[in-house]
Design a protein around this nucleic acid. Structure first.
Lengths: 190, 190
DNA sequence: ATCGCAGGAGAACGCCCGTTCTCCACCCAC
DNA sequence: GTGGGTGGAGAACGGGCGTTCTCCTGCGAT
C-alpha cells in the first residue's frame, strides 16, 4: 500500500485548500492538485468523484476550521462584552496571515454562485452559522434585540473581511472593533 | 459602414457588462461576448486588443456608473446627516435590482486579484473612491474624526453588499442604515 | 469598371480543462 | 509461483479557451 486512504485524502485537501484559496476555484485544474498533492489522478478521482465534489469538501473543511478558530478566540474571554470583541481580534489575527485573500465562501460564491446551487448554499450556510454565533453572544451580553445587534456586527465583520482583502492591510479589523464598541455602547445595558 | 465604431463599442461593453457581472469574468469567453453583442470577433479585437483590456473597460464603466448613481442619491438630500444616510438608500435600491450579484470589483478581485495586478489596482481604486466620498460627507456633517467615521460607514456598506449578494435579500441595506444611525449618533455633534 | 480595403462568418491554432482509459509494476492470498 | 487486483504514470478524449487567419462580400474612390 503506497499511501493510507486517510493520508491521501488529507494531502489532496491540503493541496486543494492552498490552491483554490490562492488562485480561485476555476483557475485551478485537477492536474495542479494532482502534482501539488502527489496523489495520482486515478486515486484523486476515487477519493473525490468530481471537481465539484472536491470543492464542496474544500469549503466544508474551511467552514469547520474557521468556526473552531473563532470559537477558540471567543472562549478565551469570559466577560460577555469582551467575548463579542474577541470576534474582531480573531479577524485581526486572520487578516495578518501571509496568504490572507478574503473569505473563501465569498470568493467561491462570486465565481460559481450563479452556476452552482451547492456552492451558493454552502456560502449561505457558512454565513448563517456565523450569524447564529453572534446572536448567541449578543443574547449572553443581554442585548435588548440580539438579532439586530448580531446583524450589525456581521456587517462590520464582513466589511472588514473584504476591505482587508482588497487593501492588503489587517487594519480594517481594528476599525471594525472600534465601531463595534460604539454599537455595543448603544445597544447593551450599561 | 455596418456599425459606427462608437455604437459597436457600446454594444460590446453592454454585453460584457451583463455577462461578466452575471457569470464572472473567467467563465465568459470572448465568443459569448461576440454573439451577445452582435459584433464580429475581428472588430471586437480591434476595439479591445485583449480580454484583459476589455475587463478593464468593463470595470471602468462600472466604476463611473456606480459613482454617478451614488452621487444622484446623495445629492437628492440636503441635510448633511441625511446625505450620509442616502448612501444606504442607494445601496437598498441597488440590492433590489433583479440581477444584483454583489460588487463587480470584489468579485473580479476574488477571481483575478492574485494573478492580475491591474484588476487588483482597479478594485483598490474603486473602493478608495468610495472612501473619499464618505470622508467628504463625514466632514460636511461635522464629524470630529471624519476618516474614522468614513471607515466605519464603509465597513457597514461593504458588509451589506456581500451579505445581500449571498442571502439574495436587500434587507442588509436597512440593517446597515440602522447601524449607521447609531454610529452617527455617537460620532456627530448633536 | 475596377481597385482596394473594411468588415463579416467562421475555421484554425495551440493550449488547458475535467474526466477516462491504457499499460505496466507491484504485492498479497493461495 | 501464479493470479488478481490495486495503484502509479501518463496518454487520450472531447470540448472550450484567447487569439489569429482565411476567405468572401460589398461598397466608396478613382
Amino acid at each position: 500500500m503506497v499511501l493510507e486512504t486517510a493520508t491521501a485524502q488529507q494531502q489532496v485537501l491540503d493541496a486543494a485548500d492552498a490552491l483554490f484559496y490562492e488562485r480561485g476555484v476555476q483557475a485551478v485544474g485537477m492536474d495542479a492538485i494532482r502534482s501539488a498533492s502527489g496523489v495520482s489522478l486515478k486515486r484523486l478521482y476515487q477519493l473525490f468523484p468530481s471537481k465539484e465534489n472536491l470543492i464542496e469538501a474544500y469549503l466544508d473543511r474551511r467552514d469547520a476550521l474557521w468556526k473552531s478558530m473563532l470559537a477558540s478566540h471567543v472562549d478565551a474571554a469570559t466577560d460577555p462584552r469582551s467575548r463579542i470583541l474577541a470576534v474582531f481580534e480573531f479577524l485581526h489575527d486572520w487578516f495578518r496571515q501571509r496568504d490572507y485573500r478574503g473569505c473563501a465562501f465569498i470568493n467561491s460564491f462570486g465565481e460559481l454562485g450563479t452556476v452552482s446551487p451547492r456552492v451558493a448554499e454552502l456560502a449561505l450556510q457558512h454565513k448563517e452559522g456565523f450569524r447564529q454565533a453572534l446572536i448567541q453572544l449578543s443574547t449572553e451580553a443581554g442585548a435588548a434585540d440580539p438579532e439586530r445587534l448580531a446583524d450589525h456586527l456581521i456587517l462590520l465583520s464582513e466589511g472588514a473581511i473584504t476591505r482587508s482583502a482588497i487593501s492588503g492591510s489587517p487594519d480594517p479589523a481594528l476599525r471594525a472593533r472600534e465601531a463595534a464598541v460604539l454599537l455595543l455602547d448603544a445597544s447593551l445595558p450599561s
